[in-house]
Design a protein around this nucleic acid. Structure first.
Lengths: 330, 330
DNA sequence: CTGTTAGCGCTTTCAT
DNA sequence: ATGAAAGCGCTAACAG
């Protein structure tokens, strides 16, 4: 079942069949109609591999993420894929599992499959590998990464905005003794969040005691342990900001375990607004970082790079406080 | 950068390069070594599309699921992909969004990309489309579906086992007034779970009052509403089984909203054991349905079909009760 | 507007 | 053990 059979059945050449598929304006409407009928009758689908081979464009995109089981990523993947499918493109996904080493394998796969472009939306990255992509002229979009040569664009998240809003909210509730549970500090995005917290506190004229900054790991466990430390202090905080929602959920568990209540005893704010954030008890006040928006922006940027429309190479995604039920006045 | 360049550099023909890549035993070790060096020097990756075109095998697998943002699926996708990548295969994912109609689009994409086989691990399915795959001799693996012609295998989940265990657990805790919140009954898997519940109760000699069976939608919202109805009864249940964890989480919310406590006032059991199930307050007792196991089984079955090893066509996945903190004696 | 034809990069007979 | 050459199914020049 191939284009030849269709051509035979429609009494035209294969070129005409190809044209009616790719650019019907080049074919007399009457002929096109006959071809379309033949295609339908034979239930014909063009072979994308043959297409790719001759045209050089695979209509496949690479999407590299850290870990699909991290609740941050599924929505991201979904909107990215939805857009791709809508435009007749296919997505192949690479998981780095947070190990920069695994990125190499992902990129090799993308290269082998001749993707038209790749979006690297992981938190970690490896400059050598990115150089390899640049060398091969593969358009790429990066998340939160400074580097941005030819054929590349960057999507930067404005983490600080949401954290400022969160702090203002806490200040308005008369909190001053506010602790922060950070993520793993080898992560750029974790460092940025902590810095934003420190700056926001300073701007308010509050000096942060060192014990008010705990280190977590962006997972439940780390939040739980960090919160236990915080509760063990002679003078515990009245409010806690967590570097992400999983951390906040861990902290919530620790607070419950200690027989205390959120928000009555301690106010708590997360970051990301993963879908579980409104399933906690109480529902978690958090900072929304729209995965859909990241995906759509990255996708659009990638398409522009692929189409070689040199317009914009830097995009910013805002973050905003979402008030729910885990904060109250002191 | 292609096989010709490699051939030139190694002073051999393209055929020899091809052989050293695909079956080195056909090449004199010394020659193979030279070719390998050329490949490395030039940083050459074979073009999979050209390969597919001539060999007829794409080394791509289709994986159709309902919705990646449903916490049931990410683990499934991850283990399936991990296995594929390990064997040098690529996975393309299709989301049906629970709409049987969208399945057609997914299958068309798979056909266009000439996948070597497809795993349809959705809850819903469409027999006409499956027939199309059968007609084209595409190996396929189905989940919980009776139909299983040539080139196809079925993975069946033993929902009843876990539900029996859950009921026995509740019986041992002296519960008798047990309600069930079902899923959408057009779903086969939802019907099976309800039936298992009814049978289990009957086996114990308990007659189920009609009001003890509520209908949900396998999402939070449905569980919340159903539980409200249950709490409004003149004689509410002492324990509730939910058709899945999201439903149980909704029910948990409704119980909290009513000022009651789990498990002190009402015991609650979920189904699936999604990762959030041990993050609830209290941690949810539920029935584990291993997504990893489904993925591994489906993957292995698909490989066998592709390799044409006609061995087994029916696989069963067990389910088991996981006791946590949402049940107690009446 | 339509047909002819030359590849795209690779694998695979068929010779040697 | 190796090379020459014929395609896999499609698109894109080039003619007409």
């Amino acid at each position: 079942m191939n284009i030849k059979e269709v051509a035979k059945r429609a009494h035209v050449s294969t070129a005409t069949v190809s044209r009616t598929i790719n650019d019907p304006s080049k074919v007399k409407p009457h002929t096109a109609e006959r071809v379309r009928k033949a295609i339908k009758d034979l239930n014909f689908y063009p072979n994308t591999h043959a297409r790719t081979l001759v045209s050089g464009r695979s209509r496949m995109l690479g999407l590299i993420i850290s870990d699909i089981t991290n609740p941050f990523f599924p929505e991201l993947v979904k909107s990215f894929e939805d857009q791709a499918v809508q435009r007749g493109q296919e997505v192949i996904i690479g998981n780095t599992d947070y190990k920069p080493k695994r990125m190499a394998g992902c990129i090799r796969r993308m290269l082998e499959r001749k993707v038209d472009g790749v979006a690297i939306l992981t938190s970690e990255s490896d400059s050598e590998l990115l150089a390899e992509l640049t060398r091969r002229n593969i358009p790429m979009v990066l998340l939160d990464t400074v580097r941005s040569g030819a054929h590349s664009a960057t999507v930067t998240v404005d983490y600080a905005q949401g954290i400022r809003e969160a702090l203002e909210h806490l200040f308005s509730l008369n909190h001053e003794r506010i602790a922060f549970i950070s993520g793993p500090l080898d992560l750029h995005s974790a460092r940025v969040r902590r810095t934003a917290f420190v700056c926001g506190m300073k701007a308010r004229g509050i000096t942060i005691e060192p014990e008010m900054i705990e280190k977590g790991d962006h997972r439940i466990e780390g939040g739980l342990i960090a919160m236990k430390h915080l509760l063990g202090l002679k003078q515990p905080p009245t409010a806690v900001m967590a570097s992400n929602d999983l951390t906040a959920i861990g902290a919530l568990g620790a607070i419950h375990d200690a027989g205390l209540k959120v928000p009555d005893d301690i106010s708590l704010i997360g970051f990301d607004d993963i879908s579980f954030a409104h399933l906690t008890q109480p529902r978690l006040t958090t900072v929304l970082l729209s995965r859909t928006q990241i995906a759509m922006t990255a996708f659009a940027a990638l398409q522009k790079l692929i189409a070689n429309e040199k317009e914009q190479f830097d995009y910013t995604i805002p973050t905003h406080l979402v008030m729910r039920a885990s904060t109250s006045a002191v």
